[in-house]
């Protein structure tokens, strides 16, 4: 027993690990909450696009020593407006617009950063995160921005639900849908930016989508889903960090793998909706002699 306690407590002796645990838990909660709406609206591709699109903004801010949040939000706004503009063209669809813009924006960011001598190290920091380098300032910034994001989502909860459930109704009942969409895109970009340091640009999508998708499998109530997604996100973050600490493997990727494993288990075994449980239930309730005999 004391061994386990020791095993659990050991990483907490180091300040950088304390910061890392707090940062990943915050990111898990924020991304789980915002990600619930991303999943329900079918915005996974848009989330991925925004994650890539904020990249040049982050790089420009980094090169000119401005706050990265400012650069990222500006980039996200430009790209989301651009998606609207290109998607409006009658020959092109929205996902084409997203595809064109996010690849272009990402390439632009890489060109910018590749001019620097420390190119490889800087780039890998952005792409895969550098969770062991979270400063106290970073933590406060993450907590502050996270609080704003959660507050905005809470205040807009009814509009977001109406938009996701029934857009025609939302428009007819007087919700200014375009404005709500834009505000949501900004909160989404903010969540992405504060996650870049911990899990990196490439894997942030997993923090948005995987815990929320897992939660969706477990409940039919949105508030419960949001709570579960936040808990699964934070929990996967903490467990993933332990894995990374003791096995000496990449932290961001470990976190994402734990979240993916949780999803896989729930997908197969969830009560009532899991793949295995429904198959078992079918056999129990509707025995089928032919099928059961041949094991098909």
């Amino acid at each position: 027993m004391t061994n386990l306690v020791h095993w659990l407590a050991d990483p907490w002796d180091r300040t950088f690990m304390q910061h890392a645990f707090l940062a990943i838990a915050l990111v898990g909660i924020i991304c789980g909450t915002v990600g619930s709406f991303v999943v329900l609206r079918g915005y996974a591709f848009l989330g991925d696009a925004l994650a890539h699109a904020v990249f040049p903004g982050v790089v420009v801010a980094f090169l000119f020593d401005i706050n990265v949040l400012v650069g990222a939000v500006v980039a996200a706004l430009v790209v989301s407006l651009g998606i609207g503009a290109i998607g409006h063209h009658e020959r092109l669809t929205n996902d084409t617009a997203i595809g064109v813009l996010f690849a272009g924006a990402f390439a632009f960011g890489i060109v910018l950063i590749s001019a620097r001598p420390s190119y490889t190290r800087d780039l890998s920091g952005f792409l895969f995160g550098s969770i062991l380098g979270v400063s106290t300032t970073d933590l406060w910034l993450t907590a502050g921005v996270g609080a704003v994001v959660l507050l905005v989502v809470w205040l807009l909860r009814r509009e977001l639900v109406a938009l996701a459930f029934d857009r025609t109704f939302a428009e007819a009942s007087g919700i200014r849908t375009w404005r709500v969409d834009q505000v949501f895109l900004v909160t989404l970009s903010l969540s992405i930016v504060i996650s870049i340091q911990t899990v990196g640009n490439v894997l942030v999508l997993a923090m948005l989508v995987t815990p929320a998708a897992t939660a969706r499998l477990l409940t039919e109530r949105l508030p419960v889903m949001v709570g579960l997604a936040a808990a699964i996100g934070a929990g996967s973050g903490v467990v993933g960090l332990y894995v990374s600490y003791y096995r000496g493997v990449a932290s961001g990727a470990s976190v994402v793998l734990v979240a993916t494993a949780v999803f896989a288990v729930v997908f197969l075994l969830a009560p009532r909706t899991g793949l295995v449980s429904t198959a078992v239930a079918r056999r129990v309730h509707f025995p089928h002699p032919e099928r059961d005999r041949f094991g098909a």
Partner: peptide, 13 residues
């Protein structure tokens, strides 16, 4: 609105 326009799988009572 028409019934067909809503997302009926939405987790809502």
């Amino acid at each position: 609105p028409q019934r067909g326009e809503a997302l009926w799988t939405f987790p809502i009572a």
